[in-house]
Design a protein around this nucleic acid. Sequence first.
DNA 1: AGTGTTTTGCAACCATGTTGCAAATAAGTT
DNA 2: AACTTATTTGCAACATGGTTGCAAAACACT
Lengths: 140, 140
Amino acid sequence: MVNKKVDELLKKNHLSITGGRKKILELFLQHDGALSHSDIEKKAGGKFDRVTVYRTLQTFLEKGLIHSIPTADNSIRYALCKDDCSGGHHHDDHVHFICNACGNTVCLEGVTVPTIELPGGYVSMQVDMLISGVCKSCNQ
Amino acid sequence: MVNKKVDELLKKNHLSITGGRKKILELFLQHDGALSHSDIEKKAGGKFDRVTVYRTLQTFLEKGLIHSIPTADNSIRYALCKDDCSGGHHHDDHVHFICNACGNTVCLEGVTVPTIELPGGYVSMQVDMLISGVCKSCNQ
DNA sequence: AGTGTTTTGCAACCATGTTGCAAATAAGTT
DNA sequence: AACTTATTTGCAACATGGTTGCAAAACACT
């Protein structure tokens, strides 16, 4: 049951179990891809206030339940962290794929970010890869 | 002289030479780092209308003079394309570094984006790398 | 200098994101 | 189950970011 999983996740992260949080977590679990704020608002059917959605996403981010994906069109997307993003503030490096055809964004879990040689003096703390192209579903 | 270079760049791209465009190009040439829309507005000292800045950036993007850099905080930054981004719509892959200390964003020209093995069915068209950490200047 | 095209500034508008505060809801206790 | 406290929500209001239409100004060309 999805509902049970949602409750567990919230409890594990010391968050009050409320309707809004449950609904948004469910959406993430169901969708299997990244969601933007407006995606969530639409899918939730106007049932929750805009502000609540913003605050919930903010909370989930801080607790490490989701991570944010930068995009070129100024619309942050969020995706569930598998394995709780190794629990805490230190996020893993991610490879994200944005499909130009369907607009969907997915987090490629299997692909590892290669190590990069930076010029002297630069210290890397986090690496994000953004790959755009055509995804599996759209590629016939 | 910077002024001459600016004029040349505009002429080469079949753009009318106007005060606003010259000023914005100068800012990019001087700053050696990525600029956001609001950066430009501030640095230009309120001399130009907000709309003009937006439209100028849009034009520069289309002509391949600048490229946009996705960021995690929903504020697109723009940077000059060295070598005119190999002239045209096909942008090269870029590695961008965002400093958590000074907030500055630079385009690391020397670093090449490694080739990545994507899962079957995925076709890559463009790759962007976003590395955050501490930059050379801030690292003492 | 004169003419046609391009660019600018203004006003108005919509989308996105934030803050303060009172009302509502959840959690913990007896 | 009722009560108390802490947390969360919704509302209003605001700030910022970005777009569009249109008339006036600036530019390019002869």
